[in-house]
Amino acid sequence: MAEREVVSNAKGMVLPERSPAPVRVSRQKVQAHGLRQQQAWLQQVVTCPPDRLEEAMANTGDFIKEGYGLDPESRLWIYRGMFPLRMVESLQIDFPGVAYTLGPEAFEALVMSYVEEHPSSSWTLNHLGLHFPAYIARSSLRGRTFLHQLAVLELNLAQVFDEPEVPALNPEALQSLAPEGWDELVLQPRPTSRLLKFDYPVSHYLHQVDNELEPRRPVRHPQRILIMRQGYQMNRVVLPEAGFHLLRDLFSGKKLAPAVERVVRKFPAVGAPELQRWFHQWGDWGIFRA
């Protein structure tokens, strides 16, 4: 995944094309406005949807000085033009799969309608996409179930990227756990380990997007994923159904022995060699807290 990076000032741009309908601007005598009013006005001009722009800019002459070189409306357009660029770029970094699937125009339209409903209220753009998967699920987009699940995967990847680093239970320690302690033993996941279950093979699809393989939307096929961060690198693996069930029980705080018994009951084909292999792998991957 791409690493988000805020930069210290404006993104490169030229004046964007204006809305088709010309904005009528009042040239009446300047009225005094307090600081709060000035800020509320400019924020509205910068962020409002196109259908409310004419109203927002109607009293531009009250707020903006007749300037040197550019008229006040063009000056406002510089700020207004940067706003969608920032929003789209931010969510494109966190949701590259959704962006690829929709294409640039549909993705921008989705982002701007989303931002209208869920404007950023945080000092960081890292939180902007928090409601994006749910918003997609409620949308009328074609294939929204797939898009929603893809967005859930991407949101989790973005979140795990920033989770705190905590020591992992090393493989030797995991292997040496005495069976007599299993009844009471709880294995906690590290914050950088997450389990996700999907109806579509979204992890495989995202891998293809990341590698510019131009995938088509996949057909339904269940996929169970473990996301983990190892050495500050993001990784994910597809898990077998039984292994996923066992890990889900363990991640939810169930004790080791009852969790193992439960998975063996539910999946009779799972035997001791398989369990041993899984725990060996999980130890190598460092998914449990020390």
Binding site: N9, L35, A40, T47, R86, S120
Partner: peptide, 25 residues
């Protein structure tokens, strides 16, 4: 600068009015 009000953040460096009120604020 200011980046937003009313609980919203535009993530832009918006210009301050250069007034006495703004200076005191």
């Amino acid at each position: 600068c200011w980046t937003g009000i009313l609980g919203r953040n535009t993530h832009d460096l918006l210009p301050m009015p250069l007034t006495q009120e703004s200076l005191e604020h």
